[in-house]
């Protein structure tokens, strides 16, 4: 598990600062004219049940590898300058940060598209799993929209 803040791909237990991460990505190039971010946070309601806690597990090495592949593909396919992806694991309280994707480019259009593609692809191919705790107990989530 990497915790170095200069790495563009990180899976970590600790929270992150959205502002610090954006500032870090702004230093990548002086040609950045648009930045799109996606921030996923812990939601209280899931399928009508009140969630008290979330817990994320990942497959070390493979998950990081998949996120790096998404980053490289996004840069290639959408023509953005760079992308960073941070995903937290372990216990997450309601309202806390879970995942952050930052796409930086010369113009806004490609960064919007790259960011939307990257979160969908992350959900599709990255070995990360979510466990929800409700009043009825704990359940591993098998499908996420």
């Amino acid at each position: 598990m990497s915790t170095t803040t200069d790495s563009k791909i990180r899976i970590q237990l600790e929270d992150f600062s959205v502002t610090d991460e954006i500032e870090s990505m702004k230093k990548v190039s002086r040609n950045i004219g648009g930045i799109t971010t996606f921030l996923g946070t812990g939601r209280e309601l899931s399928k009508g049940e009140n969630i008290t806690q979330l817990n994320f597990e990942h497959y070390p090495k493979m998950a990081e590898k998949k996120l790096e592949e998404i980053r490289v593909q996004a840069i290639k396919d959408y023509g953005i300058i760079d992308m960073s992806i941070i995903h937290r694991i372990g216990p997450i309280e309601i309202g806390e940060n879970i995942v952050l994707i930052i796409a930086v480019g010369e113009h806004r259009k490609e960064t919007f598209k790259a960011c939307e593609w990257a979160i969908a692809e992350l959900k599709r191919v990255t070995p990360i799993w979510k466990r929800e705790t409700t009043s009825k107990g704990e359940v591993w989530v098998q499908d996420t929209p």
Partner: peptide, 11 residues
């Protein structure tokens, strides 16, 4: 070898 249930990362 790893056996992987459906992924549910993201948020």
């Amino acid at each position: 070898v790893a056996f992987l249930p459906p992924f549910s990362g993201g948020s």
